[in-house]
Design a binder for these strands. Sequence first.
DNA 1: AACCAACTATTGTTTCCACAACTGATCGGG
DNA 2: CCCGATCAGTTGTGGAAACAATAGTTGGTT
Lengths: 174, 174
Amino acid sequence: MPARSRKDPEAPTLSPLARAIGKRQPFDSPAVEAFLSVMRTASWLSAPVERLLKGHDLSAATYNVLRILRGARMSGLEHGRACHEIGEHMVAQVPDVTRLVDRLTLAGLVERTRCEKDRRVVYVRITDAGMQLLALIDHPLMELHTAQLGHLKHAEITQLCDLLERVRVAEPLD
Amino acid sequence: MPARSRKDPEAPTLSPLARAIGKRQPFDSPAVEAFLSVMRTASWLSAPVERLLKGHDLSAATYNVLRILRGARMSGLEHGRACHEIGEHMVAQVPDVTRLVDRLTLAGLVERTRCEKDRRVVYVRITDAGMQLLALIDHPLMELHTAQLGHLKHAEITQLCDLLERVRVAEPLD
DNA sequence: AACCAACTATTGTTTCCACAACTGATCGGG
DNA sequence: CCCGATCAGTTGTGGAAACAATAGTTGGTT
């Protein structure tokens, strides 16, 4: 996660001594523990996925763009999607979308077409090669996900998703 | 987020039509849903935190290094920690640690000292300025965490942590 | 009709991360 | 003793993200 990056700060270090001496605050509060737990799990889950994608010369970001465009194509959107739409579906910023599309275009997985009605927008459409690449990835990725999460009972998974969704209810703040 | 990057692929796109027409596979399986749920939550949680840290010219990675070194100092380790130890506590790779320490040294938050017994290792120690900076961040960060997670009941939080821990039990695979 | 504001996408710049190759130091076997 | 293997840290390079600034388009207002 992503956010790949925060892990286990000073955890193995909090010896009984430190716990007694250092002010050590209420710093292992439930909130912090939950935060770290989500972060650790996210990076634990995403690392193997990114390795898999990298085997097909894709990053998580470019893969997501392709997924979005496949969704658009399967929904019958002939011309694909505009850049800012892609940027909305991911939470990526628009400048990044341009460069992601650059790489995908270079790889022949995606095509750009200017909109005639509004010449500002550029439609991006997944090519057949892009569809084939995604199809190639679908199965191994699915297997990876089941390898990572298949040992959980169905009830546990829904419970987990419910709790995570409940986390995201709070105001974004700041 | 770490991994900060996978979100909501083609989700708003799966119209009833697409669901009926496209082969659409068993692709919204529980495993995939849980995976995406964790990812979304991780980036939702980490984004405000990284904004807060950036206000003090820190990234998530540099902040973690500081946290690890504060932990070491509060545990009574006078000389701090060796680079490879830091790299173990984070899951960052060792080459990255060098550059992270470079920036922190430049900012005066950290000091390098060569080990006399084994002249290969370089100890990294947090300075007083580094301790002060962390102390400055502690409270706002704590408040942010409670703003993000405080609306959950204590039981829900422990349940969430338990479930996430249970996820990470599976074999790393690949 | 012309200008101004809002919008879409691109480019530029800086920072940061990932991976490979390299330098210097230590240890162990012949 | 010395030579290779291993280890610790650094450096080099390429790729990707964040953010600001820009170019080109559109639409509304005066």
